[in-house]
């Protein structure tokens, strides 16, 4: 599933280049939104859905830092090289 979500996100970026609608106004979605704009509204909605899948299936394992390792001190390695 993880690979599928990544593949779909890459596909979304490719489908963003909708050169096939470059010269089209019709159909008017909801009677007033030209297809070129409606398509990109669809891209935004699809992006929301795909990122929801990504946070569910592709969540990195190493980012959940336990509270005991939290420090309010300045960085330990104040390097001066």
């Amino acid at each position: 599933m993880r690979r599928l979500v990544i593949l779909l996100l890459v596909l979304l970026a490719i489908l963003h280049q909708d050169f096939w609608y470059w010269d089209s106004i019709y159909p008017l979605v909801l009677g007033f939104i030209p297809i070129g704009l409606a398509y990109h509204i669809g891209i935004s909605i699809t992006a929301g859905i795909l990122w929801a899948l990504a946070v569910h299936y592709c969540w990195p394992k190493d980012v959940d830092v336990p509270d005991e390792s939290f420090t309010t001190e300045a960085p330990a390695a104040e390097v001066r090289r």
Partner: peptide, 29 residues
Amino acid sequence: MASWSGIIHAAMYFLVGLKLWAFGKKYGY
């Protein structure tokens, strides 16, 4: 501008923001 930003901003939060948050919390940045 907008639909590109929607895809890329989310990618930045996921790929960069999360990692930096973890480093920040772990090392106090």
